[in-house]
């Protein structure tokens, strides 16, 4: 690990599954001068379920995350996200860390799922490991000074139930044009407590939807009401225009995704 960080410090780019980096020529991006392969580091490939949190190594692939955490009540949205991303062959290779470190990739499924789950990113720099809330990391990652390595993602085990809803333009196999991940504390009366709602792919970087969270906090879990509340607030986002979909469309479909995610939460409640 220390060697890898030293290499990164000297300017090497971390290389994990490589599925994003090997597509650089197609994006008209130059390959970096040097890469350091991090997929071989055992500590980056481990998934540890502790009493308080689940620690997922950054070099864990989407497929192995699904296999290891399928059925884990604490990670439902994350498992759904990892299991639906891209396609089976890519999920076998593409890593969690690679996905989160592809700065220009707006349609990450994992990013909103991790935000909704209130996860933290562990970053290993020359001074050792440091933790940041995932949303902070995502917003800052492109501007961090060189010499860090994303090592683990930490999902708290605090009795949250969660669900992930995504909208590809086909049934599957393309990047979703909008994503909503939702989590809430389990409650006996089906009211929403500590609700967290994250939106991905609509803007360049995934983020929470604070106004909708406030509006739903303490209300009973009614997917239709949640969709209605979302409809009133889609203006909170500035949808990005892309070749595949215009910005307005990404915003317009959010109520539907909120309803779908809330139905997913309801199914677990």
């Amino acid at each position: 690990m220390a060697e890898a960080v030293a290499a990164v410090e000297e300017g090497a780019t971390p290389l994990a599954g490589a599925t994003w980096i090997l597509r650089s020529p197609i994006r008209d991006e130059k390959l970096a001068g040097s890469y350091v392969a991090v997929s071989g580091l055992a500590e980056l490939r481990a998934i540890e379920t502790g009493d308080r949190e689940i620690a997922i190594g950054a070099a864990v692939t989407h497929a192995s995350l699904c296999a290891a955490l399928n059925g884990s009540a604490d990670c439902a949205a994350l498992v759904q996200a990892a299991g639906a991303a891209a396609n089976p062959a890519i999920r076998n290779v593409a890593t969690i860390g690679g996905n989160l470190c592809a700065f220009s990739f707006a349609a990450s499924d994992l990013a909103p799922a991790l935000i909704a789950l209130d996860a933290q990113a562990e970053i290993y720099g020359v001074s050792g490991p440091e933790r940041k809330p995932i949303e902070t990391f995502l917003a800052a990652r492109a501007h961090l000074a060189r010499g860090w390595l994303l090592t683990r993602l930490l999902v708290p085990r605090n009795g949250r139930i969660s669900a992930h809803a995504r909208l590809p333009l086909r049934k599957a196999g393309d990047y979703p044009v909008a994503i909503v991940s939702v989590s809430a504390k389990r409650s006996s009366d089906r009211t929403l407590r500590s609700v967290r709602i994250a939106v991905g792919s609509v803007e360049p970087v995934a983020r929470r939807w604070p106004a909708l969270e406030r509006a739903l906090e303490g209300r009973s879990l009614d997917p239709e009401e949640a969709a209605e509340a979302a409809r009133e607030r889609v203006g909170d986002f500035q949808g990005r225009d892309g070749v595949e979909a215009p910005g307005w469309y990404r915003m317009q479909v959010l109520p539907k995704l909120v309803r779908a995610a809330m139905c997913g939460v309801l199914a677990q409640a």
């Binding site: 197609i26 333009l169 086909r170 049934k171 595949e244």
Partner: peptide, 16 residues
Amino acid sequence: IRQTNLETYRVPLATD
């Protein structure tokens, strides 16, 4: 031409 790869040029998949 704006669609220069299979990410943006979407042909039907088995599920479609």
